[in-house]
Design a protein around this nucleic acid. Structure first.
Length: 602
RNA sequence: GCCGUCAUAGCUCAGUUGGCUAGAGCAGCUGAUUUGUAAUCAGCAGGCCCGGGGUUCAAAUCCUCGUGACGGCACCA
């Protein structure tokens, strides 16, 4: 098997370049290793560009890199290109690949390149980002493209690929620029891997919380209600209530007090907080009796008003208020996505008012809280420290101190984190908790924000040891982030098969005949007493049909009761997770359910 | 917001080049059947074909403006 590239000084060097520069190194062969796929997919992007150029002669190309899941190419053409054209482009790609064109490389100076591509504004835009004096051109058949490589020796090696989606993308990722057409694709070294990848995508689609949410009747959206406003259905309501209850206890144990602020507050307050100036375009406003009100996009101002209700001593700190706060944010239409991104959502929000000395321990306590919950659900997550954004209030010194405080807390406790420059809230830096979902996407959920600014703006204070007035520090934090997004992620994580302690329904009861309905009802009542929900499948359908229907609802446990069970006071259990069938006495069964429900505490 | 695709019954989908009372499965209702572990049978009902405007003898089908959804981009919990 011939090499397709080599590894030189830990860099992938294609054969064209290796020959030119006389480099040697470990051979990279065409397989599904990371290095090999990097080269293969990059060349497949070029092959796609070649096909696009032949089908749309006016097409101009921007960049075509490889990404985590394949590759894409951004281009511009006056023709309309839609999803239906992907097949056509694929076909053209295959026919070029069959011609086995060699991929040739040559170098020219930057000024020659600028002359060569003078009529191609996209290539000129690409070159603006390059500082080198020379650039390389890769050529296959008639098609050539400015590129740094690495590439395969020939496009004849490209066989197993698929164009997956077509979309628009801004030139240079900047919404002020023109929009280009982007086509995404995937390529592998062999047929089997491509097939597996496509199967994986189909499986991921089955887990989509929007799909499962509809099937399991967790939530819905309606056009006449408005985009981004979820409607919680009974099953979703039950699931959500379980989460809320568990979390309520968890907060109480950690010394948080439940409070509640109003849904909308006078705009003057949002001006004081800075939301009006910095976040106003995302807020909903209404004017009544000549007074303008803003619907809250965050709960902090309400909690500040709770704090202001009485004088505080340093002895009282830290003070922790929490609320399942409903907030409204006018997200842009294109951003809406199932429960992951909505315009009305409920945060598990809390604000900790503490002294500067208490910052570190408080941050660590919240990080522990987060870890407890994430590990309960077996989520992978990572933490990111986000620094001062462009739009921000407060002076640089305060930002510096607070950002450093977050880093110190993490460093001292040896907690790993990444840095997101400029990703902070306008009032302070934050630690974001990002969960990796079922298909590898990352979602921001929890957040811990350190804030010196709002206490200053609202002139918050407490009495210190010497009876002097001291400004407290505010920590804004959410563990789940929002119930909406978190439940969406949970749904995909479990593919709808929620564990007992959180499932909308714990037990499905199937009485074999009408004569067993009374027993079913009595079990159902006893389940409610121990905090479990059940549904009785007693409709006039065949037994098999009812078992099938019950199974399809993904309820964790199914019990069947007939003459034998009524007589012996037992139940016949089907556990859908373990697929086991066995019998238990009614008493043991209730104990089992109770144990399973209570086995989780945050 | 931007680029592209799309919208038919509660759900999943048919509906030919514009042409008869717009169809099916599931779900629902009624009846028969009372079942021991993944779909019993029969019947009934259900549609402002997303909304407004237009073209045409004729529109679910073509045009246009909205609304909503989907895939990305940008933005973000």
């Amino acid at each position: 098997m011939n090499a397709i590239a080599i590894k030189h000084n830990d860099e992938i060097i294609d054969l064209q370049t290796a020959k030119e520069l006389g480099f040697e190194g470990e051979q990279i062969h065409l397989d599904n290793s990371e290095d090999s796929l990097e080269v293969l997919r990059h060349s497949t992007a070029h092959l796609m560009a070649q096909a696009i150029k032949s089908l749309y002669p006016d097409a101009k190309f921007y960049v075509g890199p490889t990404v985590k899941e394949g590759f894409y190419y951004d281009f511009k053409t006056d023709a309309e290109v839609g999803e239906g054209d992907l097949k056509r482009i694929e076909k053209q790609m295959l026919s070029f690949a069959k011609k086995k064109y060699e991929i040739e490389k040559y170098s020219i100076t930057m000024s020659e390149a600028k002359e060569k591509f003078k009529n191609d504004h996209l290539k000129l835009a690409v070159m603006e980002r390059i500082t080198d004096d020379t650039v390389s051109i890769y050529k296959q058949g008639e098609f050539e493209d400015l590129c740094r490589g690495p590439h395969l020796p020939t496009i004849g090696l490209i066989r197993y690929f698929k164009l997956t989606k077509i979309a628009g993308a801004y030139l240079g990722g900047d919404s002020k620029n023109e929009m280009l057409t982007r086509i995404y694709g995937i390529a592998f070294a062999d047929k089997e891997s491509l097939k597996n990848h496509m199967t994986m995508l189909a499986e991921a689609e089955k887990r989509d919380h929007r799909k499962i949410g509809a099937q399991m009747k967790l939530f819905t959206f309606r056009e006449e209600v408005g985009a981004g406003f979820p409607i919680w259905l009974p099953a979703g309501g039950r699931l959500r209530a379980r989460l809320e209850n568990l979390l309520f206890k968890a907060h109480r144990k950690r010394g948080y007090e439940p409070v509640r602020g109003p849904e909308m507050l006078r705009s003057d307050l949002w001006k004081t907080s800075g939301h009006y100036q910095n976040y106003g375009e995302n807020m909903y406003f209404t004017t009544i009796d000549d007074v303008e009100f803003g619907v809250k996009p965050m709960n902090c101002v309400g909690h500040i008003k709770v704090y202001e209700d009485e004088l505080h001593s340093y002895r009282d700190l830290p003070i922790k208020y929490f609320e399942y706060g409903v907030v409204h944010r006018h997200e842009m239409t294109g951003a809406l996505h199932g429960l992951f991104r909505v315009r009305e959502f409920t945060q598990d929000d809390a604000h900790i008012f503490c002294t500067t000395e208490q910052i570190e321990e408080q941050i660590i306590e919240v990080v522990d809280f987060v870890d407890k919950i994430m590990s309960t659900f077996e989520f992978d997550y990572k933490m990111m420290i986000s620094t001062k954004p462009e739009k921000a209030v407060g002076n640089d010194e305060v930002w510096e101190v607070s950002t450093q405080a977050l880093k110190n807390a993490m460093d001292k406790n040896k907690l790993p984190y990444e840095i997101d420059e400029g990703g902070g809230a306008f009032y302070g830096p934050k630690i974001d908790i990002k969960i990796t979902d079922a298909i590898g996407r990352e979602w921001q959920c929890g957040t811990i924000q350190l804030d010196f600014n709002l206490p200053e703006r609202f002139e918050l204070e407490y009495n210190g040891e010497d009876n002097e007035k001291i400004q407290p520090v505010m920590i804004h934090r959410a563990i789940l982030g929002s119930f909406e997004r978190f439940i969406g992620i949970l749904t995909e994580h479990y593919a709808g098969e929620f564990p007992m302690f959180i499932a909308p329904t714990q037990v499905a009861i199937v009485p074999i005949a009408d004569t067993h309905k009374d027993y079913a009802k009595s079990i159902s009542d006893k389940l409610i007493d121990i905090g479990a929900d059940s549904e009785i499948y007693s409709k006039n359908d065949s037994l098999n049909k009812r078992i099938r229907t019950a199974e399809k609802t993904k309820v964790p446990m199914l019990i069947i009761i007939g003459d034998e069970e009524v007589e012996g006071k037992t139940v016949a259990i089907r556990d859908r997770r373990t697929r086991e069938q066995y019998n238990l006495s009614e008493e043991d069964f209730l104990k089992l359910i109770q144990t399973k429900i209570n086995e989780v505490n945050f």
